[in-house]
Design a protein around this nucleic acid. Structure first.
Lengths: 205, 205, 205, 205
DNA sequence: ACTTAACCGAGACGGTACGTCTGGTCTTACA
DNA sequence: TGTAAGACCAGACGTACCGTCTCGGTTAAGT
């Protein structure tokens, strides 16, 4: 029941896609995004800087937004460090939220802000950003929270979805709406408030 | 020996600004915004629909965003009903948050989402939206929360700024990032969580 | 038989037209015309420089061209010296043509060129330029030519209209079409040619 | 050992210019020019009528005038019939001048008038009109005149440049300045006058 | 070695909106 | 009524990007 993988496993005819071109485009796109923001981010500019043709870009990325988001993800995601675990799941969670906040304070925050903005007009951009950037971090928090429940650090009846929203919503709010500092003190107070609320949840039912 | 400037010394020379033109432009802008969103919102389109010259628009609104935001505010703010008070400040707060959420669920939410996006690229737009739309609602909540403290419904030591952020952040997060429903059930759970957390605050110091 | 000039001889009601404003406008218009040419000649610019309102300009000059032409005429015509007469009418004519050519060589030529251009699109401008600038000079030449006929210097049967056209057409041609020098040598050759032709005209019938 | 570039080494990269677009633009431009004159001749109008983008027009024609002049030349020049020759060069010349005059009387005259006007503000327009429209006709006349000298119909010493100016200057003068009819009678009288003058030129020296 | 098919860079194309500018009109308060 | 100031409508200007298209030429896989 094995496929004969040797001769022609699943190979399309014609010249294969150029990896060099792809990475040059993504690199140029990320540079432009950092230097000039979403406003100054043009496909023409990316093509010129990457030494690529516009058609090549549009062949692989449907819209300007799709390119922007992928350039961002490719450049930023590998730098995000994985969550570490300790004996206290709640302590791990606090560490995770602080780590996220510290990322949003810097360059990435500025880019993220603009990409979220871009996503309001383009569902594809929005979806990608959500699935590849926001969701993994949210999922990591969920894992930690479930562990906290198992360890009895927070009640079993706590609504974890609302809990995560309550932690991350305010951070995005500062990033996107109030444009105020997302400093350690704010994060600590927020964690204190939300975790205290979570402790009040019913034990089981 | 005649007095030149009698009653109205503060009068600029020249033809005064036309109120009719101003309101026609704002009305046309709001219509376009509702019908076509920020993407289809063009200064040229507004001028054509309002029967105004483009120069007139640019004379009074420096950017596209400045016009969009003002059109939105002029049309939407008067419709927002004032907060009512009852014997329980916490009950008032719950009512306020539910009212805000119900507004964000509809047309206004869609517009608000796009205007926040527009504001990421234009500080002026962002500032106006914050000062004329977000801040008043936040301030109303703060007033209610202070009353709750006076009535002893929540501890005197609660950090009200963080509290308000914890309530509104998640709503904006759903509006802008996760694009999920802001339904009554979610708001209730959020209020339960956050208010429960607030109750744990220290009494005085 | 004298009109009682004191009380109200022929006086329209209301504030009379301001002579100061009129001359300030004409002066500013001429300056702008010289400095920036017809391209840079705008009614707004004239109003600003003259410290006048645009409405004032449009009240007295129907079009931009009407103003340009009058500004030109008021500034230039007084400087043109009248034709002098001598014992030889043909010598006078030669002097007149040379004088005209020398004027066209300079600044006035540049302006004249642009005003003729302006006149192609605006009949009013064209008419004014013709009646107040071209025609008087043509008429002076006709007078001289008639005197030449009376003195027997050119035949009585010469067609003076064609003669004048043959003298001035080539000058305008160089000014407007070929953009070549209208130097003394050219004028002399032209006069030689045309006057020689005129001498061949029939004596009477 | 294969040769890379065979026959056409001089090929610029990129999509070549579209001949269809070029001719559609020139055709639309000429139509607009005829229907509405230079005043109503706008790049936007040409683009709309030709189904072309404005950028495409500006890519190939730097100024409005450059486009107008080329549209005129492409449409008009092919229709001008070549000069025929007969046994008498002077008779040929008379025919040429009459032919030119008859062209200037009609639609072409109106366009020519406006294009000369346009050329006063734009040297490029002026140069093109001169080199591609005026000069060829002038050169044809020069050829005929030289033949007339060879045939002994006019003296060898005649200054042909001044002669051509004396014939065509008055025609342009009527077209551009006096706006009077360029009828057969006028042309005949002009030819009589100028040719008579030319006959008086010195024989050789 | 030859064909085929998809790739690639360059850059022209139609379209749309931008923000600016000017022409000519209108509306104030004052003279 | 005339005037300065300046707002108003209308609409063309020339620029910038978008996303598509059309060239000449390249690069494997399959023949």
């Amino acid at each position: 029941m094995k496929v004969k993988r040797k001769a022609h496993p699943k190979r399309t005819p014609g010249r294969p896609r150029s990896a060099a071109s792809r990475s040059a485009i993504l690199k140029a796109a990320y540079q432009l995004l950092r230097e000039r923001g979403v406003t100054g981010f043009t496909v023409e500019g990316v093509a010129a800087r990457a030494g690529a043709g516009k058609a090549t870009i549009y062949r692989w990325w449907h819209h300007k937004g799709t390119l922007a988001i992928e350039a961002f993800l490719v450049a930023v995601v590998p730098k995000l460090d994985a969550a570490r675990t300790s004996s206290s799941a709640v302590a791990d969670l606090r560490r995770q939220v602080h780590a996220t906040a510290s990322i949003y304070r810097g360059r990435v925050g500025v880019l993220l802000r603009e990409l979220v903005a871009l996503g309001q007009a383009d569902p594809e951009t929005s979806r990608r950003l959500r699935s590849d950037f926001v969701a993994p971090r949210r999922e990591a928090a969920m894992v930690t929270l479930r562990r906290a429940q198992e360890l009895g650090e927070i009640p079993a009846g706590a609504d974890l979805d609302v809990l995560v929203d309550a932690l991350w919503g305010p951070i995005f709010h500062r990033l996107l709406v109030s444009h105020t500092k997302i400093d350690r003190r704010f994060i600590d107070r927020l964690l204190d408030l939300v975790l205290a609320g979570a402790m009040q949840s019913p034990g089981r039912e």
